[in-house]
């Protein structure tokens, strides 16, 4: 029996890994040709992400890389969502990352959007 236990021990030590588990962040697939679609939806707001990882929206800047911008952006998005709801329309966002925008900034922006419950999100 001790032989068998040793074999199992060696098996689990060699086949297992103690890595951090990866988490899923769903995001909108978009549709073919959206980037060239010149007509945005009415009430659709555009969030630009620059190469430094800063979100630019209606003249405000939110730094998404150091984390300081996530909470203010979430508050502004929640206010936008509330306004749309009270007007009887659905809040819609288009995220426009710069070609050099870091992936972390996009993930943090999707976090902020997800926390406000806005479901209509488009990526180019």
């Amino acid at each position: 029996m001790i032989d068998c236990v040793f074999l199992m021990l060696v098996y689990f030590m060699t086949t297992s890994s103690l890595e951090k588990s990866e988490a899923d962040l769903p995001f909108p697939a978009g549709r073919p040709g959206l980037a060239s679609d010149p007509l945005p939806q009415i009430d659709e707001q555009r969030l630009a992400i620059d190469a430094a990882g800063t979100v630019l929206w209606n003249g405000s800047r939110f730094d998404m890389l150091d984390g300081s911008g996530l909470s203010p952006l979430r508050q502004r998005l929640a206010a936008f969502e509330q306004t749309c709801r009270s007007a009887g329309s659905e809040a819609s966002l288009q995220i426009l990352p710069d070609r050099d925008a870091p992936h972390q900034a996009l993930v943090s922006t999707l976090d902020a959007v997800s926390l406000t419950g806005i479901e209509q999100v488009h990526l180019p």
Binding site: D24, L25, F27, P32, A51, L106
Partner: peptide, 26 residues
């Protein structure tokens, strides 16, 4: 640190292929 341009060219192919269920690993 991966720039958006890398995802952009891949997502163009993904959309053309018709895959709708997309998830980022984080």
């Amino acid at each position: 640190e991966l720039p958006w341009s890398e995802w952009q060219r891949i997502l163009a192919l993904v959309r053309e292929a018709g895959i709708r269920d997309l998830v980022f690993a984080t």
